[in-house]
Design a binder for these strands. Sequence first.
DNA 1: CTAGACCCTGACACCGACGTCAACGCCAAC
DNA 2: GTTGGCGTTGACGTCGGTGTCAGGGTCTAG
Lengths: 148, 148
Amino acid sequence: MRIGELAELAGTSARALRYYEAQGLLRARRTSNGYRDYGEDDLRVVREIRSLLALGFGLEETRPFVECLRDGHEAGDTCPDSIAVYRRKLGELDACLERMRTVRDHVARQLEGALRERAAAGPAVPVLESGEPRCFFSVGNGVRGEGV
Amino acid sequence: MRIGELAELAGTSARALRYYEAQGLLRARRTSNGYRDYGEDDLRVVREIRSLLALGFGLEETRPFVECLRDGHEAGDTCPDSIAVYRRKLGELDACLERMRTVRDHVARQLEGALRERAAAGPAVPVLESGEPRCFFSVGNGVRGEGV
DNA sequence: CTAGACCCTGACACCGACGTCAACGCCAAC
DNA sequence: GTTGGCGTTGACGTCGGTGTCAGGGTCTAG
């Protein structure tokens, strides 16, 4: 299949696929006219990458999973290197969670204190609205996670 | 005082202070030779900014606090707009925490499953080390939090 | 007079995962 | 033939909060 089709099947863009290739995560055969040509296993690789990215992994961190798949394993996370990445990520997530809980509580206390400080002053703060309260997070680098 | 002194007192850099000024958060009088000249209230403003940034607030989100201080209030978080920012941030933090817990559990289950899949294959994955497991997080934009 | 420690403005570098545009080639349908 | 939808490479833009350098000026101590 060609790049557009693969992109659609994997729920991403052709640009992203070329990027993965530039990073050495994807390799493409070429047809006589120079077009990239992909197979089913490439689709599996891209799906693996996408699901890991969605969890907040960095692209570089998906490499062991990709290589694991390419080595013929039916799942990308059964190889030692992949498992090590899982472990590291888990530790980072726990550290981040703890940190965020600390910050959350700190902000909550600040808010509480600020509210106590003044009896009534403004025209009733409008609670909370803010279009989309999306949560971007990144652990260790600048990678952003979105949907599970 | 001049910019270098203010930077040191506030625990930041002159570059950062010039940036805050460019964003309209800081205003500086100038001495006859063109040097920026700051007072005690500027120090309080910068400290407010720094502590909010450290909590993961975006620079733009510190604006209400700065204006609140500039309006003569003894604390930057007693004005309605500041409180609204606190509220919004709290909501974002809660959403982010929930999201991260979901991801954490997902990764944990993946790891567990991957471990069950294969009896023994690698030379015992080395548990977890990774120099500094620092937790960067950003809520709503690209701002990074560090120390409380 | 000169070295050195400040200050100034302006501008590029950074990080990651792409989006987007330019300028072009390939191919099928009309 | 030509329109239009695909593909190609290359390169710059994005987002924030600075670091860092370049190329100047200012002031003070020796």
